[in-house]
Design a protein around this nucleic acid. Structure first.
Lengths: 165, 165
DNA sequence: GTTATTGCAAATGATTTGCACAAGG
DNA sequence: CCTTGTGCAAATCATTTGCAATAAC
């Protein structure tokens, strides 16, 4: 959790008149410890490693707080569980490409997409607030070489590649 | 349900070796009776009006069938329930703008967005399969006039405007 | 006749919530 | 102190599933 994030957390605490508590701080910290997306359960597991008495309820409650405060964004990766993205503070308008072969998620930015979005939205009589572009794609490497490092890694870690329980 | 949709349904039935049943046909028919998005529960209600003995289970099962067969797409409108969009057969690459003031959803197409998506995706080493762009926006009419017909209508129908149970 | 399909009710699973106790300011 | 925050367990609620009965082909 860098200074910029720290500042946003502090501001959130202040603005909402919240109290500083150990469990909540542990969740804040863990959420921004890496730039990876995570589910509530994954974050819970991570928090528990250093803070064994934190409850799921607190994790969920703090997640809701961060989303409402604009620190975190919920993104739709086609999973049944909600996925949280901690990278919007650094890259406020980034998009996601999801590989349906290996499940890898690549973030990318492109100001042209935004410009067009703004234009279209304005033409329709609205004012764009935020946007999410998700591209589902297949892996060229896999198609041409018959193999892709991410797919191999995903299989090794037992990662579930397609949606639904 | 027009001929084109009918043909796709027939093809799905044939390709999967499914049987023609009354409950299932009722769901197919109702799903494409209008070009509006719907939730499973809404579709269930609509189906029940003409086919009072159809069960929720069949509605869910048929929805899954249509999604898998590419007739319907699940879209993320920020609701807790899954929303289904029957318009991808006619407009395979359309996008959604969601007004956070009144909840109205506007569909739009723009080939420039697609072109850029293709380019970016290719550059990243993937091949785009499908994409979803969701723009969350505020209503200019509401901001300047202090009122917007959709918001009034939404309030009248008791439509829930923001997410979560 | 077989096999797919259905409706029902029970199961599932992520998320939320009520409540009594603990901790922050 | 006086609230806000917490953990726990129970509640929710959309969706899925097992199963015996029913309908396709």
């Amino acid at each position: 959790m860098n200074e910029a994030v720290q500042a946003r957390v502090d501001e959130l605490i202040r603005r909402k008149g919240l109290r500083r508590t150990k469990p909540r701080d542990a969740v804040f910290k863990e959420a921004f410890a890496r730039d990876e997306h995570f589910t509530a359960e994954e974050l819970y597991d991570r928090v528990r490693r250093t803070n064994a008495d934190t409850s799921r309820a607190t994790v969920y409650r703090t997640l809701a707080l961060m989303v409402e405060g604009g620190l975190l964004r919920e993104i739709d990766l086609g999973e049944d569980q909600t996925t949280y993205d901690p990278n919007f503070l650094n890259k406020p308008a980034h998009n996601h490409l999801v590989c349906i072969d290996c499940g890898r998620v690549v973030e990318f930015e492109d100001e042209r997409v935004e410009a067009i979005n703004e234009e279209v939205t304005h033409k329709l009589g609205f004012k764009a607030l935020r946007q999410t572009l998700k591209i589902e794609a297949t892996c060229e490497q896999l198609r041409t070489n018959g193999r892709c490092p991410n797919l191999i890694a995903a299989r090794l870690t037992g990662k579930r590649l397609r949606r639904k329980r």
